[in-house]
């Protein structure tokens, strides 16, 4: 067992699940909610030349998907370190830095 205690292992897994489920909720709301179920209602709102529902379905949801994966990768690395279960030989974190610059996370 790589955790300090059973308790730590449970806490780590619970935090992981909580984060995963929160992000999956956003995933569901943006794609199935805004893009499909409530598309008619949102189409009443305009975003420049786009109807909002249509924009979510064909553009916005994809941007949100990308943001979700980035947030997950960053948060999980923090969680790994908090519970000291990250992998050895840390390397410079170009990925997080590059994406932080791009998305202002």
């Amino acid at each position: 067992m790589s955790f300090e205690s059973e308790q730590h292992a449970d806490d780590y897994w619970k935090e992981n699940l909580r984060m995963m489920l929160t992000l999956l909720c956003v995933w569901f709301v943006v794609s199935f909610g805004c893009g499909i179920l409530f598309v008619e209602e949102l189409n009443a709102i305009r975003l420049g030349g786009f109807k909002l529902g249509f924009w979510f379905a064909q553009q916005g949801s994809i941007y949100v998907f990308l943001a979700l994966i980035v947030i997950y990768a960053i948060k999980m690395n923090q969680l790994d370190r908090k519970y000291n279960v990250h992998e050895d030989h840390e390397e410079p974190e170009e990925f997080e830095e590059a994406l932080e610059e791009e998305f202002g996370q």
Partner: peptide
């Protein structure tokens, strides 16, 4: 038209499941 969104969301949204689960 709009219905094409099934491919756009379907073929990208799966990566969220892949990355998270």
């Amino acid at each position: 038209g709009y219905d094409g969104a099934v491919y756009l969301m379907g073929w990208t949204g799966g990566y969220v499941l892949l990355a998270l689960c």
